[in-house]
């Protein structure tokens, strides 16, 4: 097993790009939320990888990853409830339809 940082960074960049693409293009708010998870995961992967290769004690990066997972759980909780409310009001979860503040 080659022990270099580069593949991890490539994978995390890929995850970030996929996530961004999803956030910007999906027509469903649930899917947007899932894409957001990808972005968060790319960040966790970075923390763990940098911790593993550049720090004397890798546990700092791992703690950050755990925090991010917890934060993601909380964020999903809030976001899902918002989406639920939105759906009840408008029978739609398409972000393009939410343009009431249009000038």
């Amino acid at each position: 097993m080659s022990a270099t940082l580069q593949p991890y960074l490539l994978i995390s960049t890929l995850l970030l790009c996929l996530g961004l693409y999803g956030v910007l293009t999906r027509r469903n708010l649930i899917a947007v939320l899932i894409s957001l998870e990808l972005i968060l995961n790319s960040a966790s992967l970075n923390f763990v990888a940098f911790g593993r290769f550049h720090m004397a004690d890798p546990s700092a990066g791992q703690v950050f990853a755990i925090f991010i997972i917890a934060l993601a759980a909380a964020e999903v909780c809030v976001a899902l409830s918002l989406i639920l409310l939105l759906f009840r009001q408008r029978r739609s979860v398409d972000p393009a339809s939410m343009d009431q503040l249009k000038g």
């Binding site: 961004l20 956030v23 910007l24 972000p95 393009a96 939410m98 343009d99 503040l101 249009k102 000038g103």
Partner: peptide, 18 residues
Amino acid sequence: LAVRLQSGSLQGYLACGL
């Protein structure tokens, strides 16, 4: 002219910001 920027599309704003 400035009104056109306020498209109301969330993802548009986000793309702009990014």
